[in-house]
Design a protein around this nucleic acid. Structure first.
Lengths: 359, 359
DNA sequence: TTGTACGCGTTATCAT
DNA sequence: ATGATAACGCGTACAA
C-alpha cells in the first residue's frame, strides 16, 4: 500500500487516528436522525430545539451515557467553561468556606471551578495564573490584590472578568468582594478601648505568613494612635499558630501584673485558642488576667473556656458573591469597560466571655 | 493581532471567526522561523529540539507570554492533561491534606487537578464523575469504594487509571491507597482493652455523615466481641461535632459513676475535643473520670488538656501516593489489565494523656 | 532534527 | 426550528 503518486504527497490515506473511545456528538446525532448542531443546541440552548427532538435526544443521550467534550467545546467557542480561583491556603477552613460558596453558586451554571494554592506567595500566584491561562478560563477569582507586575499584565491581557475576593481596597482595576481588613483591626481594638483598656497588644503570626493579618494589625495601630495610646505589636517566633498563641500567653504571664497588657488581640482564632488553652497551666485565669480576642470565628472558638470573642467574616457568602459577580459579568458581557465594583460583605463582631476586660 | 491564516484573500466566503485574543503556536513559530510542530515539541519533548531553537523559542515565548492551549492540546491528543478528584468534604482538614499531597505530587508533571465535593453522598459522587468525564481526564482519584452502579459503569468505560484513596478494602477492581478503617477501630479498642478497661463506648457522629466512621465502629465492635465484652455504640443527635462530643460527655456525667464507661472512643477528634472542653463544667476530671481517644490527629488535639490520644492517618502522604500511583500508571501505560494494587499507608497511634484509664 | 498534512469533537456563521 | 460548512489550536503520523 505505498502511495502511488511519487510526487507531491496527495490524497494518500493516512492511518486512522486512534479514537478517544467515547461517543461523540455525531453518534448521538445519527441515532436521533438529526444533525450534530441540533445535539449541540440540545445541551446549550434546549429551548431552541423542538420538544420532539428533545425527547428523542434525551433518551439517546441517557442510553449512550454521552457527555459533551469540554475540550472540543472550549476550543470551538474560544472560551473554556471554567472559572479559575487562586487560594492562599487550601488547608485553612477560611478558604474551604470560600470554595464551598463558589462551588455552590457555580454549580447550576455548568462552569467548573479550577483551584490552585498559592500559599501566601505572590510568585506562586503568578505561576498559577499562567497555568490557568492555558485553560482559557471564562473568569478568574483571586484572593489578594497585590499581584506581581507580570501577573497584573496577564490579568489585563486575558480580557476576562477578574474578581478579587476576601479583601476590599480602593483604587484597584478589578472587581472586589470582601471587607477591608484594616477596618477589622480597628473593630477589635475599639472593642477593648470601649471597655477602658489602655494596654492592648496585637499578636501577629510569624512573618511571611498571611499578609492580611498585617493589614489588620495596621488597623489596630491606627485605632490605638487615634486614642492616644501606644501600639504594641508582638510577632510570633514559631510557625504553628497554636504554639505561637501559647508562647504569647507565657510571655504575658512572665510580665509583672501591673505592666501586662489588659487585652490581647490575636491575628487569628487558632492563635487565640492556643493562648486560652495554655492559660490554666500558667496560672492565669481568663479573662481576668488577660482579655482575649481573635479573628475568623473558627468552629472551636465558641467551645473554648472562656469562649472566644472574635470577628466573623461571612466566608461562604464572600465565595458565593464572588461567583455571582462572575456569572453576572459573563451574562451581561457587553459592559467591557464598566467600572470595577466593590461589594462589601461585612464582618460581625461576636462577643463572648474571653474579652471582658478585668477591672 | 495579525491574521495568522496563510491562505490570503481567496474565496472570501465566511466571516473570520472571532479569535481567542491570545497568541497561538503559529505566532511563536513564525517569529522563531520554525514550524509549529517544533514549538509543540519545545513544550512536550524539549530534548528533541536543537539547543539553538530552544533558546530562540524560550526568548519568544517569554516575550509573548505565550501559553499553550490546554483545550486544543487535549483535543488533539485525545486526553486532557487533567487528573480529577472527588472529595467528600472539602472543608475538613482531612481532605485538605489529601489535596495538598496530590497537588504537590502532580505539580511537576504538568497535570492539573480538578476537584469536586461530594459531601459524603454517592449520588453527588456519581454526578461529579459524569461532569468530569467531559474533561477526558488522564486519571481519576476517588475517596470512597462504594460507588453507585452507574458510577461504576462510567469508571469502567473511561479506560483510565482510577485510584481510590483513603480506605483500603479487598476485592475492588481499582487501585487503592490508604488504610483499612475497621482496623483503626480495632486499634483504638485494643488500646483501652490492653489497659484493662471493660466498659468502652464508641461515639458516632449523627447518621448520614461520614461512612468511614461507621467502618471504624465496626472494627471496634469486633474487637470488643473478640474480648468477650459487650459493644456500646452511641450515636450523636446533633450535626455539630463539637456539640455532639459535649453532649456525649454530659450523658457520661449523668450516669452513676460505677456504671460509666471507663473509656470513650470518639469517631473523630472534633467530637473528642468537644468532650474534653466540656468536661470541667460537668465536674469531670479527665482522664480519671473518663479516658478519651479520638481519630484524625487534628491540630488542636495536642493542645487540649488533657492532650488527646488519637490515631494519626498519614493524610498528606496518602494524597501523595495516590497521585504517584496515577503518574506511574500513566507512564507505563501498557499494563492495561494489570491487577489493581493496594498500597497501605498506615495510621499511627499517638498516645497522650487523655487515654490513661483510671484505676 | 525538522516539516507537512490532517483530524480531534465541538460551536459560530450563514442559509433554509 | 434545523442544517451545511468552516474553523478553533494543537498533536499524531509519516516523510525528509
Amino acid at each position: 500500500m505505498k502511495p502511488a503518486s511519487s510526487s507531491s504527497s496527495s490524497s494518500a490515506s493516512r492511518a486512522p487516528r486512534r479514537k478517544a473511545g467515547t461517543h461523540t456528538i455525531h453518534d448521538v446525532a445519527a441515532l436521533a436522525g438529526v444533525s450534530a448542531i441540533t445535539v449541540s443546541r440540545y445541551f446549550n440552548a434546549p429551548e431552541k430545539v423542538s420538544a420532539a427532538a428533545r425527547e428523542r435526544l434525551k433518551e439517546i443521550v441517557d442510553r449512550l451515557g454521552y457527555v459533551p467534550s469540554q475540550m472540543a467545546g472550549g476550543l470551538a467557542s474560544g472560551r473554556g467553561r471554567v472559572v479559575c480561583a487562586v487560594m492562599q491556603n487550601i488547608a485553612s477552613s477560611t478558604f474551604a468556606d470560600l470554595v464551598n460558596g463558589m462551588t455552590d453558586e457555580l454549580k447550576a451554571s455548568g462552569l467548573q471551578l479550577l483551584l490552585a494554592n498559592a500559599q501566601y506567595s505572590r510568585e506562586l500566584e503568578e505561576s498559577a495564573i499562567r497555568t490557568f491561562a492555558g485553560w482559557h478560563p471564562s473568569a478568574l477569582i483571586l484572593t489578594r490584590d497585590d499581584h506581581t507586575p507580570a501577573a497584573e499584565a496577564m490579568l489585563q491581557a486575558l480580557h476576562i472578568p477578574v474578581v478579587e475576593a476576601w479583601g476590599l481596597v480602593e483604587g484597584r482595576p478589578f472587581h472586589q468582594v470582601g471587607f477591608p481588613h484594616p477596618e477589622a483591626g480597628v473593630q477589635l481594638a475599639e472593642h477593648f478601648l470601649a471597655q477602658g483598656a489602655t494596654r492592648i497588644r496585637f499578636v501577629l503570626p510569624r512573618a511571611s505568613q498571611d499578609f492580611r493579618a498585617e493589614q489588620r494589625a495596621a488597623g489596630y495601630r491606627q485605632a490605638m494612635q487615634a486614642a492616644g495610646l501606644p501600639p504594641d505589636v508582638a510577632v510570633a517566633e514559631v510557625d504553628d499558630d497554636y504554639e505561637a498563641g501559647a508562647r504569647a500567653m507565657a510571655a504575658h504571664a512572665a510580665q509583672a501584673p501591673a505592666a501586662r497588657p489588659q487585652a490581647l488581640v490575636f491575628a487569628n482564632d487558632n492563635m487565640a485558642a492556643g493562648a486560652i488553652l495554655e492559660a490554666p497551666s500558667l496560672g492565669l485565669a481568663l479573662p481576668r488576667h488577660a482579655a482575649i480576642a481573635g479573628f475568623g470565628d473558627a468552629p472551636i472558638s465558641v467551645r473554648l473556656r472562656p469562649a472566644l470573642t472574635t470577628l466573623r467574616p461571612a466566608r461562604y457568602e464572600i465565595g458565593q458573591q464572588a461567583a455571582r459577580r462572575v456569572l453576572g459579568l459573563l451574562a451581561g458581557a457587553r459592559n467591557e469597560a464598566a467600572a470595577a465594583t466593590r461589594t462589601l460583605v461585612p464582618c460581625t463582631l461576636v462577643v463572648r466571655d474571653s474579652s471582658r476586660v478585668g477591672r
